[in-house]
Nucleic acid binder design. Structure first.
Lengths: 377, 377
DNA sequence: CTGTTAGCGCCTTCAA
DNA sequence: TTGAAGGCGCTAACAG
């Protein structure tokens, strides 16, 4: 009942398994035309499907690319996954998916599982963390990756190198200019916004979040503004929502203090309190924060401005349109995947520190100001 | 340089490979405690990782679950994928991802690739098509699946059976009550909406779309309403947008015909033209349509109501909140995946027509009326 | 309880 | 060009 084997095909075609193998895959050597045809027919009639496991075992290479994400249902990762998938198809490979929820321990498991399957390469998306609690996990992950690379595996990490990882051969980092872009966002915002800024960040130690926070502060400074207060919460919609609630309370309090201009409803003009501009370190958090403000009867951008980061596609129809930084997520996935393609001979070598920068077209982003941060009431 | 093997571990521990194998995996038989410990240490010190390919070859089972979707970045599929992933983790399996763009030809390729990798089971999400152009593709896909099942593979399809597929053992269909739910949506809407209905559907022949269209018409009929006109467009945001543009033009035309009640802007009260309620067969299309209306200066629900289907999580913060039918996408993925788990002995058999219904908790949905279809101006 | 012996299905030297 | 033989790493029957 099991699928038919190469041997069966060979027998049916009246040739040796070796010959059958040669015609059924792109072997260097060309079998006789007539023979080839016979083999092909035999394969067809038996519905032969090569056993990739056996092939992999024999060739010690599996045609698999492992992808590690926090959560595949998160549009950020889904977009990256699409890019990875495309690049994988170009390489005629399949992608193995692992979702980890973000913990280095689970990530380590995933790497081990990929290694067990002899994945040719691994792409790790999702922010690194340098919190204390993750320290052990990180070094175990680093060790696992190191071993994987030493056994000939290729790894690409999106964003930051794994904390504590050496930079073995085959280890690539796709840099994402989070800090710089957040800085640009801040300066642009500062140009059109008089009020104060608040940052809604993820937990401290999440590198991506930290970069964006830092960059934003720098941008503010460059623009001659005072630093923004940073609220910490979960790196997802609900974190944004919580922070939004907190901010809504403050905004309302400030308003009533400044003068109860109108109890009939919040008025953009009334109290002298300067309006707040909220920067959430990703779009999903921004949406959460916006929802919270709205649920408290505040309106955007009338009562507060809000900006996000990523420019998630599904969120582009959100109203008011969200100011954000567009990141070429799909490209990021593609670039990361391509970076793991073993370099051909004639490589111009890396820059000495081991980890090379996966340079095929460096990742850039674009500040995208929209309605949610318009100053006009 | 290659990863260390079981044989090396065995040698280091001074035992036979068989023994090493027995301790390193859950073999039925238990080796001596001291021996076990020695083996474990040897494995640890060598950084041994079992070769899943070899294991799979020997056991003829790979621990792989293949998932086929149109597009992993589509939130509908991403949500299902999350469910599949969870169930896979429960079964201690990994998921192999294939995205096909929806064509049966690519789906067939994917099935063949999964078969080659000896995936233990395959989950197919994404609407089936019965269009003429897909006829050949469908039957090839059916044949491929049939072969896969005959070789012992398990298949679960979300929604509809593959067109033309026999119902071999191991072939499961996770039914989604699209038609019924669309009907319920229609009747509920009919209760609070006086105007006419229009359906924005996908291309004819897309089974999921067709079901929803049909169900909606039935619901309308039950409510004593006349059938809705059906606009056909692509099954994605841009299709919805196109249809929305068309509808916006009509709405405006109807208004000026009925009487230029106010040129200052569209007014809900003014013209006697009954307001339209648009049913888009999925949320993403609905969002597209809404965006189109908005771009034409129309407002929802003031100038037209709109409803979708799926209740995509990322879209829940959309304003006005979208009336829709909630589908437990994640559960669907989970249920489909679990259905492919080979039944234990003592199975109560199938219902004779071969394909069984993957009954572990039938899928149900829930009509969810929100702001976008509120009658009040 | 342990070790030995065969494969799982395929690829890849080698010799013919 | 084709065939025969050995091995990829592991498991599953046997034998001890």
């Amino acid at each position: 009942m099991a699928a038919s084997t190469l041997t069966e095909v060979a027998r049916l075609a009246g040739v040796s398994p070796a010959t059958a193998s040669r015609v059924l895959n792109g072997s260097a050597r060309k079998p006789g035309k007539d023979i080839a045809e016979r083999v092909r027919q035999a394969a067809e009639s038996l519905g032969y499907i090569p056993n990739a496991q056996a092939q992999g075992l024999a060739k010690s290479s599996s045609g698999l690319i492992g992808l590690i994400v926090h959560d595949i249902a998160d549009p950020y990762f889904a977009a990256i996954a699409r890019g990875v998938q495309e690049a994988a198809r170009e390489q005629r490979k399949m992608v193995l998916l692992a979702t980890t929820g973000g913990g280095p321990a689970e990530e380590k498991e995933a790497v081990a599982a990929f290694a067990a399957r002899r994945a040719d390469s691994i792409v790790i998306a999702g922010s690194r963390s340098c919190r204390d609690e993750d320290k052990d996990g990180n070094s175990e992950l680093a060790a696992e990756l190191d071993r994987y690379c030493r056994n000939g595996g290729q790894v690409a990490v999106v964003g930051h190198p794994v904390v504590g990882a050496a930079a073995p051969e085959g280890y690539h980092v796709v840099k994402v200019p989070n800090q710089e872009l957040a800085g640009r966002l801040a300066t642009e915002l500062a140009g059109s916004w008089d009020g104060d800024f608040v940052i809604v960040g993820g937990p401290e130690g999440l590198l991506t979040s930290d970069d964006r926070v830092r960059g934003f502060q720098e941008g503010l400074e460059r623009a001659g503004r005072r630093p923004a207060e940073v609220l910490r919460s979960a790196f997802n919609r609900s974190g944004g929502y919580d922070a939004g609630l907190e901010l809504a309370a403050r905004i309302k309090a400030a308003r009533t203090n400044a003068g109860p201009s109108g109890e009939g409803g919040p008025s953009g003009e009334g109290g002298g309190a300067p309006k707040l501009c909220i920067f959430a370190v990703n779009d999903v958090m921004a949406i959460g924060a916006a929802a919270a403000l709205r649920s408290e009867g505040l309106r955007i951008p009338r009562d507060a401005a809000i900006a996000g980061f990523d420019d998630i596609e599904t969120l582009r129809d959100f109203r008011p349109a969200l100011s954000t930084v567009r990141l070429p997520l799909e490209d990021i996935g593609r670039v990361a995947t391509r970076a793991t393609q073993r370099r051909l001979a004639g490589d111009d070598g890396d820059d000495g520190d081991g980890a090379d920068d996966a340079s095929p077209g460096d990742i850039t982003g674009e500040v995208t100001l929209r309605r949610s941060t318009e100053a006009a009431a």
